[in-house]
Computed example of a mutant assay.
Amino acid sequence: MHMAKKILVFAGSARTGSLNKCFAQLAAKRIEALGGEATFIDLKDYPCPLFDEDIEAQGMPENVVKLREMLAEHDGLVISSPEYNGFITPLLKNTLDWLSRPDDNTPGLALFAGKPAGLLGASPGGLGGIRAMAGVQQLMHNLNLVVIPPAMTLPGAGNAFDDNGAFKESAQAEQLDALCQRVIEAVNALR
C-alpha cells in the first residue's frame, strides 16, 4: 500500500501570535491546497528540556519521543525560523538537537537523512529574518536534510497577513506556493 508522502511543518517560536507560526500555518495550508499532505505542529505543545546528556542518560523526555515519532512518520519538513539577534532561536536549535540524538531504534541522524526541507523566515523588520538563514541552513545541512532553495524570507511580516492568515500581497503568495510546490515535488520524488 502506497502511503501519501507527508510534510511536517513548524516554527522556531512558541509565542502566541508569532509571525513565524502564522507563516508556518499558512505554508501547511498551501501544501494541502497544492495537493500535498502537511501536518502543522506548535512546539509550545511539546516543551522539551534544554538538551543535556545527563537528562538523555535517564531516557528520552516524553515530548522528545513524541516529536521523534512524528518526524519519523514524515518525508519532508518546512521550518519557519525567526531570528534572535541575527541567529537561530534557542527553541529551534534545542528541538533539532534533541531530534538528532540516537536512541534504541534509530541511529543519530537517521530521522533527518535525505529528507527535503523548505526554509522560511519572517520578521517585522526590513530584513525578514535573513540574517538567521545562513545559520539555519548550515544546521539543516549538518543534519543531512536536503534544503530546497531558495529560502523565503518575509520582511514587514507584522503587516503581511490578512485576518484569515493568508498573504495580502499576491507576489508573496506566489513565492510561498512556488517553494511549497518544490518541497512537494522533492518529497514525491523520494522512493
Rank of each mutant, 00 (worst) to 15 (best):
R191K: 15
L154T: 05
A57M: 06
D103H: 14
S123H: 04
K5Y: 10
G129K: 01
G17E: 10
P90D: 04
W98N: 04
D52Q: 11
A24L: 07
I79H: 04
A189G: 14
G125K: 01
V183M: 07
P107E: 11
P90G: 08
V64I: 06
P47R: 09
M140F: 14
A132Y: 06
G158W: 07
Y84Q: 07
L34S: 05
I79L: 06
M140L: 14
V64D: 03
D104G: 07
A157W: 03
G118L: 03
A28F: 05
P82M: 03
P82Y: 06
A134V: 15
A186R: 05
A171Q: 15
S80I: 06
R30W: 15
L143M: 03
G135Q: 15
V9Q: 00
A28R: 05
G76S: 03
N85M: 01
G76I: 11
R182E: 15
F161D: 12
A189P: 12
L127W: 04
Q181D: 09
I148H: 01
E169H: 13
E37I: 15
D163Q: 06
D54I: 10
E83Q: 03
S18G: 13
S170R: 12
N105D: 15
N142V: 13
C22F: 12
N85V: 03
F167D: 07
V187I: 11
G12L: 00
V183E: 10
G86E: 02
V9L: 07
